[in-house]
Amino acid sequence: MMLVREILALLFFASAVVFGIGGVVGLFRFPDPYSRLQAGSLAGTTAVVSVFFGALLLAPNWAIAARIIVIIVFFLISAPTGAHIVARFTWNSGLDPWRPPLQKRSGPDEDTDETERPRRRR
């Protein structure tokens, strides 16, 4: 019969699947490395941490549970830092975040590409 632990672990795994699908779909639909980074770290960090918590509940003995806790702590340090480093380096390299092109309602329909937007001072 289903133990309480298994039901909770199932809950964690289900949330991991939801986060994972959201992240992976976002990885392909977003137009810009920055937004892809947000979707990616959503899938890569949140989903994996909930998998860890689910595995923590299913751990057969204490030796494994202790190791999983250490892994959770270290993963929570390394993954977001990695995502932050990528964002920082792309920002320093001058890549401008994506902005939707301006739609001009009145006036002749001149081209509304990025050039009208003031580029940020380097």
Partner: peptide, 16 residues
């Protein structure tokens, strides 16, 4: 940057 993002996710998934 996309490749680095993908690598970051891949190592997370592999860890899981």
């Amino acid at each position: 940057a996309d490749r680095l993002v993908a690598l970051n996710i891949l190592s997370g998934l592999a860890l899981g």
